[in-house]
Every structure is written in structure tokens, then in C-alpha cells.
Design a protein around this nucleic acid. Structure first.
Lengths: 208, 208
DNA sequence: GCAGTTCTTGACCGGACGGTCAAGAACTCA
DNA sequence: TGAGTTCTTGACCGTCCGGTCAAGAACTGC
């Protein structure tokens, strides 16, 4: 009763329903665009009444924000796990690049949503903080590598942005191969190839 | 009468009006988002009646498509002019990187629109072709550099994507410094610094 | 000054959208 | 079984949006 939709206590059944709405929304947003996808589209796709959506989410905007928040958190967690236990700044950097590329290429829908979110202030704010953290992480390793004399001096912040560019673009769903039905995909072999090339370009690129 | 709005013969006054609508729309789309910006917003901003918009443009969609088409053409023209007369694949590559970064950083609004356009099929199609051309250009120079033994072998297509990533990210308005009023900007000194770093990272990156 | 064209106005239209809500179905637990 | 809670329904609401159009103003060339 008047409990906020985002604080609600859910039964297992409720959690399932919520998750299927989330999953369907992510797919639709990614393939159709956020604005062109209406709440009615989502509930119709899942096969429920409109009220169900507002039982589980406060608004359409909040749904997207939640997707972004969760995704950033998941990416960061994955990256941290990959870096943990690796020694040396360059090795950490490489592990981070591998992890973020692998994650990105297995979450193409999310990447599309993030790309959209950057184009509207309301959502971009939700990304800025997480982006800063990931960038600062990379910059820290670069700075350490410079301090240890592993690579030539240079602005670590800007180098981190460049590194980010390489991994982002190589992982971007838009640069995959276009299938007959118009869908753009990157298969498993391509994923490995791209990761290896990404690592190579990044390590040589910052070495200048 | 009943001439299509995009084939219309315009007087100088008409061309001015059209241009101010275009300019205002670009700025609004970039800062506010495409969908959240209504045609009413645009005509109100320019201070004219709604019908004026549809006298000069067939639809809101067409307006964006025209902006994208013109921008891609302008970028490509600029890049070509910069590369022309430069000798050697690596020098051509460098000239291309410099030109595209300089262009991108002086057209931040356009970059935002392009980023948005990639997230919706209808508009993404308008970009795909131009993107392929720019990418193929870069790939050609890389291939030539490999052939001449200037850089180590590697898939030119993927290397071109990586190069693209470096230049795109370093030129991205989102990676600028946030001013007090929330606007993100990159000043002239930063532009030069970023271009130099971009060139350095690209040339070393593909050298691997 | 007149005819023809270019341009401008803003009320208006049909429809879609995000979000609400009263009503009730389906579970849970004592 | 029955009271309480979680979940579901879909008609409904106010608003806004892209786009139209009849009317007329402002130019242009003669």
C-alpha cells in the first residue's frame, strides 16, 4: 500500500515477473530505441497488464536508470575480479582490458543502452560517475607504469581515455559483421581475435 | 505549390530562415536530446510559426537525416583535403587522424547527434555507409603500411577500428572538462594536446 | 498596381504516450 | 476458512506531439 515501487518486498514469483520485464525491456530498448519503445510495448511483449509495470518500477525513466546502474556495477565487479591478484601495472592494465572487452562483447544490448544514455543529460549523469571510476582505475595503472619506467611519460588521464577508446570501439556491437537479417553480431572467434588485437594496440599505444 | 519541401527553390531570405532553423535544431538536439526536443520547441526558439518548419523540411526525421548526411560529407571532405598531397601510408594515416580529431572537437554538437543516431535503426542506416567509407580509408593506409613493412602484420580492418576508437574517444565531448554550469568543453590548448597524444598512440598502437 | 510566387501564421487534428486507480484474483499463513 | 498481503487487470485521464491547412502577408518582376 503506497509502498514505493522500488522498495517493495517481492515474493519469488514477483521477482521472476520483475526480471522478465527487465529482460524484455533491455532487448526492446536496444533494438528499437528507448523513446520509440512504449511501456505498452513492454507489457504487451511480456503479456501482462499495464499496471504490472508500475507495480515493479516507479517509471520508465527509473527502469532505464536501474538497468544502467546495475550494468555499471556488474562491469566494475567483473573487472575488479579479473585484476585482483595480478601483479604489476601493465599486467593489471592488460587484465582490465581483457575483462572489459569480454564483458562488453557479451552484453551488446547494454552497450547500446549506454550509448543512448550518454546522449541525454538525465541519463548521462547516471553514467558519469561510474565512467570516472573506470577511467581513474586505468589512469592509476598507467601512472604506475610510467613511474616504474615501463612506458614513456604522458598524461595518464588522456592515455586512459585513448585506451578506453580502443576497447570501446573494438567491443562495439556496431562494428560487428552484418548478417543477412540486418542484425549485427560478433561470434566467439571474433571476440578472441578482437581482445588479442585490443591488448596489443593498447600496450603498444601507451608505450610511445 | 505542393513542391516537396526538400526540393523547393529558395530565395536568399528563405535560405537564411532554413539555416537558422537548422542551427537551432542542432544545438537543441545536442543539449536536450532528439526525442525530447519537439518541433514546437524549435520554431518557438527561432520565433516563427509551426508551419515554417514544414515549409523547409519534410519532417523532423528528415531534418536529422539531413544534418547527419551533411556532417558526414563535410568531415569526409575535410579529411580528404588534409590527406591529399601527403606522401606515404603512415603520413596519410597521421594526417587523417589529425584532420578527423580537429573536425570532431570543433563540432561537439554533431558528435552528440551522431552518437544518438547510432542507437536507432532508422538513423543508424544513414551513418553505416559513411562510416564504412571512413573505415575503409584508414584500413587501406594500414594495409599499405604493412605491405611496405612499416608496421607489423595484422588485420587492417580491426586495426582501423582500433584507430577509430582512439580518435573518437579522445575527441568525444563527453570526455572534456565539466565547467561550473554543467557544460562540458575542450579548450584550444586541450585540442592540440589531445591531437598530439592521439597521433602518438595511434602510430605506436598499430606498430605492434 | 497587378499577378504570381514565396513565405508565414497558428488553430486544429488524430493519435499515442506515461501514468493512475478501483476492482478483483491469487497467493500466504494461522 | 478467512483475514491480510501480493499481484494483476485494463479502462481511463490529461497532456503533448508530429503534422496539416486555409488564410493571408511579404516579396518579385513587369
Amino acid at each position: 500500500m503506497s509502498t514505493a515501487a522500488d522498495t517493495r518486498k517481492l515474493t519469488p514469483r514477483g521477482r521472476d515477473r520483475r526480471q522478465s520485464l527487465l529482460d524484455f525491456a533491455i532487448r526492446r530498448f536496444a533494438e528499437n530505441g528507448y523513446h520509440p519503445t512504449s511501456v505498452a510495448d513492454i507489457v504487451d511483449g511480456v503479456g501482462v497488464g499495464k499496471g504490472v509495470f508500475y507495480w515493479y518500477f516507479p517509471s520508465k525513466d527509473d527502469l532505464l536508470r536501474e538497468i544502467l546502474r546495475d550494468s555499471i556495477y556488474d562491469l566494475r565487479k567483473t573487472q575488479q575480479a579479473a585484476i585482483d591478484g595480478v601483479d604489476g601495472p601493465l599486467a593489471k592494465l592488460e587484465a582490465g582490458v581483457r575483462a572489459s572487452m569480454a564483458w562488453s562483447m557479451t552484453h551488446p544490448d547494454i552497450l547500446r543502452l549506454v550509448a543512448f544514455a550518454w546522449t541525454e543529460q538525465t541519463f548521462a549523469e547516471a553514467l558519469r560517475k561510474g565512467d570516472q571510476i573506470l577511467l581513474a582505475d586505468t589512469a592509476r595503472h598507467i601512472k604506475a607504469a610510467i613511474a616504474e619506467g615501463d612506458i614513456a611519460p604522458g598524461d595518464p588521464e588522456l592515455l586512459a581515455i585513448a585506451v578506453n577508446g580502443v576497447t570501446r570501439q573494438l567491443s562495439s556491437p556496431e562494428t560487428g559483421t552484418v548478417s543477412g537479417d540486418g542484425t549485427v553480431t560478433i561470434d566467439e572467434a571474433q571476440i578472441q581475435e578482437r581482445i588479442e588485437l585490443g591488448v596489443r594496440v593498447v600496450l603498444h599505444g601507451i608505450r610511445g
